[in-house]
Computed example of a mutant assay.
Amino acid sequence: MIEWEDRFQRDDGRHHFQVGAEVEAAFWTSYQQGTSLAKATQGAGVSRATGYRWLYNRFNLLRASNGPARVRKELRLLPGTAAAWEKRWKTELTVAKERLDQAHRAGIQDTRLFAARAAQTVSPAKTRRDLAETRYWDLVNAGSSNAEACRMLGMSRRAGTKLRNQRAEQSHIRVPVQGAGRYLSLLERIQIADLLRLDCSLRRIGRELGRCPSTIKRELDRHRDGHGRYSPHAADHSASQQRRRPRDRKLRRNRRLRAIVQRKLNRHWSPEQICGWLALQFPFEPGLQLSPETIYRASLFNDDGGLDKKYCPRLRTGRKIRRHRWRTGSGHGAVVRNMTMISQRPPAIETKTEAGHWEGDLVRHEALFYRAEVEDLRRCAVAAA
Rank of each mutant, 00 (worst) to 15 (best):
I2Q: 09
W4Q: 05
D6W: 01
G13Q: 05
E22P: 00
T29M: 00
Y31V: 03
Q33S: 12
A38Q: 12
K39R: 15
A49W: 10
R53L: 11
L55E: 00
Y56D: 02
N57I: 02
F59E: 04
R63C: 09
A69M: 13
L75A: 07
L75V: 07
L78H: 14
A84L: 04
T94K: 05
K97Q: 09
L100A: 15
Q102P: 01
R105I: 08
R105H: 09
L113D: 10
F114Y: 09
A116T: 15
V122W: 06
V122Q: 14
P124C: 09
R128T: 06
Y136C: 07
D138R: 07
S144D: 13
A147G: 00
A149H: 03
E169H: 06
H172Y: 09
R174F: 07
R182I: 13
E188H: 02
R189Y: 06
I190K: 08
A193K: 05
L195M: 03
G210S: 05
H227T: 13
H227C: 12
R229G: 04
R229Y: 02
A239P: 03
R252L: 15
A259Y: 00
R263G: 05
I274L: 01
A279C: 09
T294I: 01
S299Q: 09
L300S: 06
D303P: 00
D304I: 03
G306T: 05
G306F: 03
Y311K: 03
C312D: 02
P313S: 05
L315M: 05
R319M: 08
R322H: 07
R325T: 08
V335H: 08
R337G: 03
I342W: 04
T353C: 01
E354I: 13
L362D: 05
V374N: 08
A383G: 11
A384M: 01
